[in-house]
Amino acid sequence: MALVDRIGTSLERTPGGGIILTSVDALVDWSRGQSLWAMPMGTACCAMEFIAASFSKFDYDRLGTFPRPDPRHCDVMVLAGTITEKMKPAIQRLWDQMPEPKWAIAMGNCTVSGGIFYYDSYSVVRGADEFIPVDVYIAGCPPRPESLIDAVMQLRELVHEESIAPGKRRERNTKLPRSKAEANERMEAMRTPESDGPHAPAKVVNKEFPSDVIADEGGEV
């Protein structure tokens, strides 16, 4: 990677090198976009739809995407399914094992925000972007396989904005902390119940149930 970076940087600095740079970028981005090999990080329900997307009926191999279980050979991590606190270190490690350049697709509500498990759960991570810079989000519980194919095509458009020159690289859309200190600070903010952070506990209102909706136990039920 370092060599490619250096070539990119020197091309950018050379007068007139931009012409070569853009042509090289066009080729590189085309090839990267055409072969987005997916790391199936299938943890729960969405993994079924992920499998469906790679099999006969949907076949995203048409786009050059196919699943390889080894993180070293993959370009895009498809986070499919609920992520728990126990699973988080494993995913983090697999993400770190993937070689640059790499992208992430958050498939399904659970990896977008925690989904149906947002409230009341003591073990679910509320969104994969708490620890992985996600590029494309797919909503749905679970999303249809077509949505995954669409996400791959959207990701391809993002890839086409990339460049081999570090200066011209696309800004990663990430809310992730840049340093460990910042991460700890955020964690603390999350922990205190009084904070106004996004993960502050909602106020619990104990209201009486309206009488008209209460089941009549002696009735026709």
């Binding site: 009341d120 003591y122 999350m190 205190t192 506990p201 149930f209």
Partner: peptide, 19 residues
């Protein structure tokens, strides 16, 4: 031990009571 009724942790976000 989370299934105890008195279990409470700041990480848990209580579901608002919409019914």
């Amino acid at each position: 031990h989370p299934l105890r009724k008195d279990y409470d942790h700041p990480r848990v976000i209580r579901r608002p009571d919409y019914i």
